[in-house]
């Protein structure tokens, strides 16, 4: 009796959801994907709600160290939300609620005792539009270390017999060289950072982030506000950084993702991770039809 009941049922499901089934197959084909290299960040079933809006649905992925992982997808697909989960910046949005697990080197960052300051020292972030502080270039770079008490200078510090001016100079030079900005600004370190061009400001923000000595750098469309030349400099820099750091970059520019990333995760509308695989695979032979449509410009 159950047999007869079941048959028409499954039949109807099969006819209405062929696309869905192939979606499932596509998903099955990549869920076991494990990128080459040690896993740096392990994300497990993360969900985000903004009020009643379910912005990110059950996203799981492992991000390997010393590589570039690109997150692509149309606007509002949840890729930036996902990025902000990785350093708990969503905590600052009162309406946001995050569930799930993110581990950095096996340590849970959503643990109630997690130290946000330590977390954000390890996981730096570069924002969509350059946001240097209205201070000198030098102060921008040394901002993080000064806040963390690693660099003390000024009258009070001298009073206590400590003056890290030399260490600061060293740090500023190191960070600016890493961000390929040293040659352009070395003669005006005490000028206001807001006087730099947009591309320089963004590289300054990257340098500022490197000065804290993070393991992971999150970049939220770092080149979207920049002209093509400044963009290509940022791209070169990202590839260079991937030798030592784990870079996770959100971009809406698919060519950019194809050029600079090792792995690509595709988010489409609805906050779902549709496919995650080696960048080559995603761009040449994606499992999901929707991803192929998106990549080839038929959708989004």
């Amino acid at each position: 009796m159950s047999e007869t009941d079941m048959t028409p049922d499954t039949g109807s499901t099969a006819t209405t959801t062929t696309a869905g089934e192939s979606e499932e197959e596509a998903r099955a084909a990549w869920t076991d994907y494990h990128a080459a290299g040690e896993t740096k960040l392990s994300v497990e079933d993360i969900n985000v709600w903004y009020g009643d809006d379910h912005a990110l649905k059950n996203v799981s992925m492992d991000i390997p160290e010393e590589s570039v992982t690109a997150l692509i997808g149309p606007s509002g697909c949840g890729k930036s939300t996902f990025l902000r989960c990785l350093n708990r910046m969503n905590d600052r949005i009162k309406a946001a609620r995050v569930e799930g697990s993110v581990e950095v080197d096996g340590t849970e960052i959503y643990h109630p005792d997690a130290n946000l300051v330590e977390l954000r020292k390890r996981i730096g972030m570069v924002f969509q539009s350059p946001n240097p502080f209205p201070k000198s270039i030098r102060e921008n770079i040394s901002y993080g270390p000064r806040k963390h008490g690693e660099i003390e200078k000024g009258l009070l510090a001298r009073l206590f017999g400590r003056d890290d001016t030399a260490a600061e100079n060293e740090l500023v030079e190191r960070a600016l060289k890493q961000a390929a900005l040293w040659d352009e600004v070395s003669d005006r370190l005490d000028d206001n950072a807001l006087g730099l061009s947009g591309g320089q400001q963004q590289r300054l923000c990257i340098a500022r982030c490197l000065a804290v000595d993070p393991d992971v750098i999150l970049m939220d469309e770092p080149a979207s506000a920049l002209d093509p030349i400044a963009t290509s400099k940022i791209e070169d820099l990202v590839e260079e950084l991937a030798k030592d750091y784990t870079v996770v970059i959100v971009t809406h520019n698919m060519q950019q993702a194809a050029r600079i990333s090792d792995q690509t995760a595709v988010f489409l509308t609805g906050g779902e991770l549709i496919e995650y695989d080696d960048t080559e695979k995603i761009f040449e032979n994606p499992e999901s039809q929707r991803v192929e449509d998106y990549i080839t410009g038929k959708f989004g």
Binding site: K121, M125, F127, N131, P132
Partner: peptide, 8 residues
Amino acid sequence: DGAVAMGA
């Protein structure tokens, strides 16, 4: 945001 993201 920039300051907080750096661990301030």
